[in-house]
Design a protein around this nucleic acid. Structure first.
Lengths: 234, 234
DNA sequence: GCAATACAAAATGTATACATTATGTATTCA
DNA sequence: TGAATACATAATGTATACATTTTGTATTGC
């Protein structure tokens, strides 16, 4: 069916961008894509428009679509912002999750585990993406979700390197990350916001160094957003 | 020119939704809009698609566009999330603002002040929207901006009531809000993140009660997201 | 030989005709 | 009379032709 074909195309393009099969900064030619996915320009343009809104691609007037780039100044703010968004989304997921939402999360986690064990970095990164996106949806907060989705795009693109461990220590980190996911599921199931916030911070710290090193060989001193402890405010 | 007409139409629709000239939940008929704005369906559909991505309208397969509704369960998360997003965006704006960005902010603030003094609630809400959006752009953080924009949609729609004061006390609050903006500009200009965070919290608290009362006559006990004071993490 | 301009080719943007899906109404059958 | 189905109508989705804008190339003038 036509609507399904469009959804599939959209999902496929997202996936190819997330795995860097289509590199950051690449030009996306309408005609080529139409040919590849067997549809006319009108629905394809809608898809590109939508990918633009989600932050997967950059659109410029009369100059087509480019896959969103990952330049250093922007990525610096990524490391600044990620823990705040992730921690708060996780907390809300534990608080607001519905009963039927835990099983699908477990299913994703199984696929994630399988991919890490098979050493399939792209698939692991994708399933990790789906895992955190599912958690984001369990938070039931439409205001935070857009930022989470935006972060996960770059996080997933960066994390390819994390799932391609180059040493014993790095391999162990992947195993720990997988265990974190299991513990997160349990914390969500039991609705323990405090637990999942701690887990999320640990999860973030586990991969942060590796990701940063990928961004710049000389690690920058990143001062992450400190949020003052205000009773009246946040 | 054609591109400009599209931009104007997009901006006009945003405005009409923000001022509730088009009510939450309203159906948007393509043909009617095409007629009104003098363009064909193709660019109009792109506009609706874009408004959908931004959270102004909800799109459903084969069933057109509806202006995003403002239901109570969702608005509860609005009050939960707003201070966190606002405070962090403000902090980043003070830290990352560029020199040339302060003047435009001042210009918006003048229009805001004029609208409040003229008692034009819709215009005041719109200029307040533009003010906080401009601050958001000064934060130079593409990850937080989507959530800020999403919040500002509902905030602006709710805030109409705030700028239509029904008592001396409420009128005084509007004056205070205006003074807050002035102080924020100064804090941004001087790059004082601590100051602007305090101001932002005060600014939020000033309008919160009034907005909440508009949402539900019986004010709910809102427990705002507390962010633990972690050295290692956030 | 270099720069600037004019032209051609390719790509993006728009309008419209056609296809498909949803919806409301009327008719038929129990 | 009520429910269900078939049909008509309206609205959304897609394909394509046409318009506009950009960009690369070649030619001309200095």
């Amino acid at each position: 069916m036509t609507a399904d074909k469009k959804t599939q195309c959209l999902e496929d393009l997202r996936m190819r961008i997330l795995t860097q099969e289509i590199a950051p900064g690449s030009d996306l030619d309408e005609a080529t894509l139409c040919d590849r996915y067997g549809m006319s320009r009108t629905p394809m343009r809608e898809i590109l428009q939508r990918l633009g809104g989600e932050g997967y691609v950059d659109l410029t007037q009369n100059r087509g679509a480019k896959v969103a780039s990952m330049d250093l100044p922007v990525l610096r703010t990524f490391f600044q912002t990620a823990p705040m968004i992730y921690a708060n989304v996780a907390r809300l997921a534990a608080e607001n999750r519905k009963a039927g939402e835990v099983a699908p999360l477990k299913a994703i986690q199984e696929r994630f585990r399988a991919a890490t064990q098979a050493g399939d970095a792209a698939e692991a990164a994708l399933q990790n993406h789906r895992f955190h996106l599912a958690m984001g949806e369990m938070a039931h907060n439409p205001y935070l979700l857009p930022s989470l989705k935006r972060m996960l795009i770059d996080h997933t693109r960066l994390s390819q390197t994390f799932y391609r461990p180059a040493s014993e220590d790095e391999a162990a980190r992947v195993v720990t990350a997988c265990a974190h996911h299991d513990a997160m599921i349990e914390a969500i199931e039991r609705q323990e916001p405090g637990v999942i916030v701690d887990l999320t911070i640990a999860h973030w710290n586990l991969s942060r160094d590796r990701l940063e090193r990928f961004v710049s060989p000389d690690p920058l001193p990143i001062d992450v957003l400190p949020m003052k402890d205000r009773e009246d405010a946040v």
